[in-house]
Design a protein around this nucleic acid. Sequence first.
DNA 1: AGCCTAAATGAAATCGATTTCAGGGTCAAG
DNA 2: CTTGACCCTGAAATCGATTTCATTTAGGCT
Lengths: 320, 320
Amino acid sequence: MATIYDVAALAGVSPATVSRVFNGITVSAERSERVRAAAERLSFIPNRTARTLRKQSSEVIALIIPDIENPFFTALARGVEDVAQASGYSVVLCNTDEDAEKEARYLDVVVSENMAGIILAAASDLVNLTDLTRRGRPVVAVDRSLPEVDTVTVDNVAGGRDATRALVEQGFQRIACITGPTGRTTAEGRADGWREVLMTMSAAHVDPDRYLRYADFRVEGGHAAMVDLLNLPEPPDAVFVANNLMAVGALRALIEHDLTPPLVGMASFGDLPFATLSPRGVTVIPLPARLLGEAAAQLLIERLQGDDRPRQAIRLGNPA
Amino acid sequence: MATIYDVAALAGVSPATVSRVFNGITVSAERSERVRAAAERLSFIPNRTARTLRKQSSEVIALIIPDIENPFFTALARGVEDVAQASGYSVVLCNTDEDAEKEARYLDVVVSENMAGIILAAASDLVNLTDLTRRGRPVVAVDRSLPEVDTVTVDNVAGGRDATRALVEQGFQRIACITGPTGRTTAEGRADGWREVLMTMSAAHVDPDRYLRYADFRVEGGHAAMVDLLNLPEPPDAVFVANNLMAVGALRALIEHDLTPPLVGMASFGDLPFATLSPRGVTVIPLPARLLGEAAAQLLIERLQGDDRPRQAIRLGNPA
DNA sequence: AGCCTAAATGAAATCGATTTCAGGGTCAAG
DNA sequence: CTTGACCCTGAAATCGATTTCATTTAGGCT
């Protein structure tokens, strides 16, 4: 309720002086003290809306993610939050549910609330960021890269290779792959790594894509794809699953068919969330979610502080 | 970049008229059309900051939760989001990490950004909501009840009873309980239900609290508590765990000791997240997270629309 | 003592919307 | 033909901070 005008009146100074006190601009010790006392008495909380309107930018950064129920993204969010908090920014989390329309709506909100910047794991490769960039709002794409803007990702192809090689070394022959939606860069990259390894195997006289399934990065999708693979005349003896949730689904399918790993081999890109199974049997390619978030926030904050290097494309190593 | 003044100039009308067009106030069809065309050409996005400043309230509701990495709270968040979106509100998610100080900081942000209202799963029972309520911002406490404000919870005592009874019916004798931090209402309620059942059992000639452990609602806490219980001279033969994450930790401990349920009985308050284990062995008391979120959002929105009934305390039934 | 520089302060403009108030136009009833 | 009622419309005030610009004050140096 109390405004800087009230505080100013009570302290016997001008509103400008009150503003200066709260922004660390030199004010005589004696006045400064009077202002603080007055603010305290009125339990004054500065109105950020007015501040944002005048400064044309808030201290809030938006983090837009496609699935808030996926522990990968919440871990990433924790990373963003930690770094942002340390620099005095608040983070607001927006969940698009992999829906391009919801995403577009949130992007409008970002512009229209004058948020400082945005970290985006895009639901659609076709996001329109012109409203943002035209207004000079920095954008960092995380996990899923986007053209034109800074990007923080992992090496999906290498991860796919590592996972598949691990299965090969465990002696599996017919290695399937369950990946994400077609056209999604993370999904394609991981499948590419898998295919690459299989093609270079001497024994690969069959078309690997027979064992390739595109699903939706969700538990049910992984489950359905695994069931489908198990119903083949010659089912695979191992599977590389391209994300954590689909791995959960696939694992459930295997358990239902009494094929608990390592009866059938499994490798997952990203840790299995809250796994209670003993880790024997499932090979996990670590996906440093929190680090991704931290790096993205770091980069965004540098941009907010005026860094104008050319476009950065950071690729985090998989700490194999 | 474009403001209503630019749009007004291009359309040859006053800024007031532009505002009216975007707020559904009657404007002649012909002018309205000119305004829309102009806005389109300038790709005008209304500045919500200015709007909020003038209206003294934004269309954003804050959801403050203690642990964004707990699937229970993300499911709850989904419920809030769905209902809020449908009424035209955006949701911003704030993670307090069970830290009262972070929580207080976010509450200040809520005030200072003129957010419309707030849904709170409080980290501390001692939250100070006077700044909010004095300014007439509605507050709904969810999952964890608070005095003075509207509240949406489940019946914790009944849940604890049901879980414990289920273990009794499965023939277990020495039933332990791992609950949350002392003083947290949800933790105490669930433990009370457990104790109640044990006290009424004829065979309960021993003090049940010998088998009671207070942990932190997190995976590691559940694990440590379970290990501790297993190291007792006469370890329990079953355990009721008061939340999903601690259940994961306890389950891991049991598996490590080759006591996978049902070798040792287990009941969990709330679904095990992403369980890959076959459900045999672990009794689950369902916790309707999403429904909690929906109900809380529903109630908050009614308050925002002027509902002034006395304080509501909604208790969702456990769909046993 | 006098002059110059630098620091501290306040008045007023500004950010971009909403909303009150008053004026002007249209139409129907008397 | 006049009067009133009602609907559109625009001018201007308003929300609460920040910031420019001009002015005052203090202090240092010769």
